[in-house]
Amino acid sequence: MTTLGAYLRLMRPANIVTAVADILMGYAASGALLSFTNQGSSALFSNDSQPLLWLILATIGLYGGGVVFNDVFDADLDRVERPERPIPSGKASLGGATALGLLLLIGGILAALPVSLLSALIALGVALCALLYNWKGKHHPVLGPINMGTCRGGNLLLGISAVPAAVEELWFLALIPIVYISAITMVSRGEVHGGNTAALKGAVLLYVLVIGSILSLSLFLNFNVLYSLPFLALFAYFIFPPLFKAMPTKEPKLVMKAVKAGVVALIVMDASIAAGFAGWIYGLLVLALLPVSMYIARKFAVT
């Protein structure tokens, strides 16, 4: 691994692609894409799409910086449990990683500012939540997963903030990624020493709750659940089999595969919601990020 490759690995590039999917989904939910079905994909590349481009840059900075600080705060622990990671292996320095993390977080906040002050404040909140999680949150058995989920929920709100007034109306959509990421975080704690049966079973229940919540959106919003169903089926196919396979043995490798599947499946979840708001073509556009993330995941670690 080269020095550049080590710093890229710290940023978890495959995961960053899933964060972009959050923005695309939130952008659709905000109503900013009402003209999409009439204008086709060209609507995404008009002058009106500039807020979307700024928000994508913002989430790249926020997510990248957040996960870099994960390794910064875990440097001592990784020297014992995961010596192959960039910092303990010596491929990346602790000071260099800290500087990179700060640069990414600050850049993410500044990138949101051209959209609106609200977008920048949401970005600041996401950055602070990420730092809190890496510093203290991850060590708490209950608040830790919620803290991590809040980072993702904030990222969804960042996408919705393309239309600032929509945040007040659609804030509850952030609860879906909060629940989902909380489930993944619960599972991920068994990556090193093996999974916990209660945590794995709890994740199954939370996954079911997420799918049920997405299906129920049609009861409250202008959401076409029929467009969403094929994507939800694919979502279930991604998340449940690896989790069920990890349950009997609780082996770290199987748990890691379940976590990896859960992270990558975020794109499918986002596509299922985006399709309900903006049509199946837009859902496929979001889903197109999936092979990109999966390809990058072969080169760089997801967890």
Rank of each mutant, 00 (worst) to 15 (best):
G212I: 15
D22F: 06
L110I: 14
K201P: 00
S93D: 03
D76H: 08
A97Q: 03
A301L: 14
A123D: 13
A92K: 11
M186R: 07
V225Y: 09
G153V: 15
K245M: 12
L254M: 08
A265W: 01
A29W: 04
K299G: 05
I56M: 12
L284M: 09
A198D: 06
T98V: 15
L143H: 07
G5C: 11
D22W: 07
I56P: 01
A58L: 11
Y180S: 12
A14L: 09
I214M: 03
S188F: 07
V302D: 06
L103F: 13
I178P: 10
L290P: 00
S119D: 13
G101P: 08
D78K: 06
G137S: 04
A14Y: 06
V68C: 08
T150A: 09
W171A: 13
L10G: 02
I56S: 05
Y237K: 13
P248H: 05
L287T: 12
F36H: 03
G31Q: 05
I176T: 06
K253A: 04
G159P: 07
G61R: 00
V208A: 11
M11Q: 09
L209S: 15
A29Q: 09
L173D: 01
I109V: 14
S119N: 13
W54K: 02
L100I: 12
A111G: 05
L105R: 10
K138T: 07
S119K: 10
P248L: 06
G65M: 13
I106T: 15
S213Y: 11
V225K: 06
P145T: 07
S30K: 01
A111I: 14
W54A: 04
G262D: 04
A75V: 15
L55S: 02
M25D: 02
L77Q: 13
P164Q: 06
L215S: 01
G108P: 13
P51N: 09
A97K: 02
L284A: 03
S42P: 02
A274K: 06
P291W: 12
M269P: 00
F244E: 09
N155S: 14
T249R: 10
T3G: 13
I109F: 04
I211Q: 04
T37W: 01
L131I: 14
